[in-house]
Simulated assay, not measured.
Amino acid sequence: MTLPTLRIRTSICANQTHQDVIACVEGGADAIGVLVQVRHRAEDAVDLATAAELLRRVPPYVGRYAVTHATAVDEILDLARLPIDTIQLHGDVDPATIPVLRATTPHIRLLKAIHVVDDRDTPTSEPWSSLVDGLVLDSVNYTENRIGGTGLTHDWSVSAGIVKESLIPVILAGGLRPENVGEAVRTVRPWGVNVNSGVERNGAKILDLVEGFVRSANADINR
């Protein structure tokens, strides 16, 4: 089903510098993220010490999250040392892992990425809808060994179908930018949207692009 919302929440991933964080916060993002523990190709990951330093710069009332490729419980639990409220599991995590994470870190919300390829291999929200707090629908590029941060959109009609069946919040990601996020929201009707390189120039988050992204994501929400 489609969850009611008065506005689209916006999260910005893979922040690497203090300037990135400032641009995202001042641009109106609801949540600020870092990419850590990578196992696939990614140029914008940071180590845990850097992640902690960046996230401490995020002011009150703005969410803080970590995106990880890790799948082993012990490694994921290392993230509990970060000043975060949410962990986004982007790797091929065993569903049996989730109850263990819940029991050990009950104060941290869990998101699970679902990789949308095309309508010939349509993913579903199961079994995750009963295990985690939200889903992230992202593009994947297996040719380049990227399971996120591809800069590529996917078939939004597939994502729209997942949103309709999901009982938990769904965040749309994958190739979004200020120019196309409004159309994406109208098509998919997600609870939130996530962006990385779509608000960057030369690898840095840009205030004007962040502002434009947040504004465009919410331009037509009541239509």
Rank of each mutant, 00 (worst) to 15 (best):
P123Y: 05
R56K: 08
I98M: 04
E126L: 12
Y142W: 08
T86E: 09
R120K: 04
A103L: 09
D119Q: 10
V116S: 08
T104Q: 14
H90V: 07
V140T: 12
L101F: 07
R146D: 05
G134C: 02
G134N: 11
Y61L: 14
A96K: 13
L111C: 03
A96N: 11
S130H: 11
D74W: 11
T104G: 08
H115R: 15
T50I: 06
P99W: 05
A113R: 00
T68V: 01
L48W: 10
D118A: 12
T104W: 02
T124F: 01
V73S: 07
R102K: 11
V136S: 02
P106T: 10
D85M: 11
D85I: 01
H90P: 09
E53R: 14
S129K: 14
Q88A: 04
A66I: 07
S129T: 15
V100I: 14
E126S: 06
S125M: 01
A70C: 13
P60R: 12
V93D: 04
L55P: 12
I147H: 13
S139R: 14
D92Y: 05
L101P: 00
A80F: 00
V100Q: 14
S129E: 15
R56H: 13
N141Q: 05
Y142I: 01
A52C: 14
V58H: 01
G134R: 03
Y61Q: 09
R56L: 10
R81Y: 10
R102V: 11
D121E: 05
V116T: 01
P60Q: 08
S139H: 12
Q88G: 06
A51P: 04
A103H: 13
L48K: 03
S130M: 03
E144C: 06
L82A: 12
T124W: 08
K112R: 10
T104C: 04
I87D: 06
I108L: 15
Y61T: 11
V116N: 09
W128M: 08
R120C: 04
L135K: 03
R120T: 15
